[in-house]
Amino acid sequence: MNLTVNGKPSTVDGAESLNVTELLSALKVAQAEYVTVELNGEVLEREAFDATTVKDGDAVEFLY
């Protein structure tokens, strides 16, 4: 899956889609429990991480 992460191209191997929690784990995001996630310009509530799917071509920003 090809994404733009914090403005840079990134690839997650072996996945066509992941939820936000899985993406944080796959990318080994440090202190993931404290990060705010913006997906395609929309800031996500932490409670929505498990239910929100990240797909090929999406833009993700991790805000600390």
Rank of each mutant, 00 (worst) to 15 (best):
M1S: 01
T21H: 08
E38T: 15
Q31S: 11
E16R: 12
Q31T: 07
Y64T: 12
V37K: 00
L27R: 00
T11E: 06
T53S: 08
A32P: 13
D58T: 03
L44C: 06
L27E: 00
K8S: 08
L23W: 01
V60W: 03
E47T: 11
N19Q: 04
D56T: 10
L23D: 01
L63M: 11
R46E: 04
A30H: 12
Y64R: 07
N2H: 13
E16F: 14
T53E: 10
F49D: 02
L44S: 00
T53G: 06
E22N: 08
D56P: 07
G41W: 04
N19D: 03
A26N: 06
G57K: 05
N40I: 03
G57Q: 05
L18Q: 02
L24Y: 00
L18P: 01
A15L: 10
T53I: 14
G14K: 07
A51N: 13
E22M: 09
M1A: 03
V54S: 01
E45A: 14
V5Y: 00
N6A: 04
D56V: 05
N2E: 07
S10Q: 15
K28A: 09
M1I: 12
P9H: 10
A51Q: 13
A26V: 14
A51H: 14
P9L: 12
D58P: 01
A59M: 11
T11S: 09
T4R: 09
L24R: 00
T36S: 07
L3E: 01
E47C: 12
G14S: 09
L3N: 01
L44M: 05
T21Q: 06
S25N: 12
A48L: 12
A51F: 14
E61Y: 13
L23E: 00
S17H: 10
A48F: 12
G7T: 03
M1N: 02
V29W: 06
A26Q: 10
T53C: 14
N19A: 05
D13Q: 14
G7K: 05
N6D: 06
D13A: 14
V54F: 03
E33L: 08
L18K: 04
K55H: 11
T36A: 07
S17E: 09
G7F: 04
A32Q: 11
S17Q: 10
T52L: 05
T53Q: 12
A51Y: 14
Y64C: 13
G7M: 04
S25Y: 11
T21F: 07
V60D: 04
A26K: 13
D56N: 11
E16C: 12
E45L: 13
Y34A: 08
G41S: 04
E33M: 10
V5L: 07
V37R: 00
N19E: 01
T52D: 00
G57V: 01
K55F: 09
V5G: 02
G7R: 05
D56W: 06
E45R: 12
E47Y: 09
G57L: 03
Q31N: 15
Y34W: 13
K28N: 12
K8R: 11
L18S: 03
V12D: 02
N19T: 15
E47I: 09
S10K: 14
G41N: 04
V60L: 12
S17Y: 10
L18T: 04
V43C: 10
A51S: 14
G7W: 03
A32M: 11
L44K: 04
A30D: 12
L23V: 04
N2W: 10
V29K: 03
E45W: 07
A15R: 13
A30L: 10
F62E: 04
A26Y: 15
A30N: 10
E61L: 10
L63D: 12
E38W: 15
D58N: 01
E61C: 13
A26W: 14
M1T: 05
T53A: 09
L23R: 00
E33H: 10
E33W: 10
N40D: 01
A51V: 14
L23Q: 00
G7N: 05
T52R: 06
F62W: 07
